[in-house]
């Protein structure tokens, strides 16, 4: 198991390097630059600004400098938020976004797996149809529809939770955004769990467990559910990516000071360093969750460890 884990971890670094390299050059290919505003700057000033940020150097040299800074943990200065470094901006927003995203993924697992299991065990019953219908809705409705709806119902009318906003340490501000973000993931995980559990329940080893005279509860929890969770675990990587993009919308709807907006604003403004910073952070995050999924895979199915 240890050598399996080390091999997986070693695979992350080259992947991250490729992500950084590709994004660095792709964003430079996009037309425009950080200092092309509606109000055109005099060419001399623009040239001075570009020189100050090193943008007049050959692209490869800029790339080299960026990598060198990155290795030392320096994301560089933001071109647009002139008083802040990218590191400072991320340090402000990321904790909120992380809390939002990880809570959403966790909630999705905690709710989605039991719902899917219940639906599978009551296959073709009203319970099953009920859960699966809600799940289809959950997948179909985007966050910018469910978010404001939740704010309206649970915030404005019932007054259970704040409509929007953020106060550090106050968990009640997180409830509606987390639920909004988690809903499609819950739905997807419930569907995955149901389908895969139904398949596993028909396998020979489950029949063996039943032939042993074990209570049905134990047959399911001990023998069937673990292999049935493999597809759910594989979905963790894409789910993270989904939650990251989803958090852009949810953070806007609920006015959360997360870091999601920096990715969008940075890209629109051609704030090269900010975009790159966000890509590095979100890329590492996605890779980490994929890594966790890989390690879970090895735990769920011992055969995977020996490939």
């Amino acid at each position: 198991m240890l050598s399996y884990a080390l091999r997986r971890i070693a695979g992350v670094i080259p992947t991250l390097f490729i992500i950084i390299t590709l994004s660095f050059f792709v964003i430079r290919i996009a037309p425009g630059g950080p200092f092309d505003d509606e109000q055109t700057l005099p060419p001399e000033i623009k040239a001075n600004l570009e020189a100050a940020y090193g943008l007049d150097k050959p692209l490869l040299e800029q790339y080299g400098r960026y990598l060198a800074g990155l290795v030392q943990g320096d994301f560089g200065p933001s071109f647009k938020f002139k008083d802040f470094s990218v590191t400072e901006l991320i340090a402000q927003g990321l904790p909120v976004s992380l809390m939002l995203g990880l809570s959403a993924v966790l909630l999705a697992l905690l709710v989605g797996i039991p719902l899917g299991t219940l639906a599978a065990l009551r296959q073709n019953s009203p319970t099953d149809y009920g859960i699966m219908s809600v799940a289809v809705l959950g997948i179909a409705l985007p966050g910018f529809v469910t978010g404001p709806l939740f704010a309206l119902v649970f915030g404005l009318h019932l007054r259970w939770f704040p409509v929007a906003g953020w106060e550090a340490g106050e968990l009640r501000y997180l409830v509606l955004p987390v639920v909004t973000l988690a809903l499609p993931v819950i739905a997807y995980i419930a569907r995955l769990t149901r389908g895969s559990l139904l398949e596993v329940l028909r396998t020979n080893h489950v029949r063996t467990a039943r032939a042993k005279g074990l209570p049905e509860r134990r047959v399911i929890l001990k023998h069937a559910l673990r292999p049935a969770l493999l597809p759910v675990v594989s979905y963790l990587g894409p789910a993270t990516a989904f939650v990251i993009t989803g958090s852009l919308v949810v953070e806007t709807v609920f006015g959360l000071p997360g870091s999601g907006r920096y990715l969008v604003q940075g890209a629109i403004n051609r704030d090269y360093t900010l975009v790159m910073g966000m890509i590095v952070v979100y890329g590492s995050l996605t890779l980490t969750l994929n890594l966790i999924a890989d390690l879970l895979y090895g735990w769920l199915d011992p055969r995977v460890r020996y490939d």
């Binding site: 396998t203 020979n204 080893h205 029949r207 063996t208 467990a209 032939a211 042993k212 005279g213 074990l214 001990k222 023998h223 673990r226 292999p227 769920l300 199915d301 011992p302 055969r303």
Partner: peptide
């Protein structure tokens, strides 16, 4: 599994892999 036991045809898939 106590008084009445059964063994199956396919030993490759009849044991729980994990």
């Amino acid at each position: 599994g106590v008084k009445l036991s059964m063994i199956f045809q396919d030993p490759m898939t009849s044991l729980t892999p994990h």
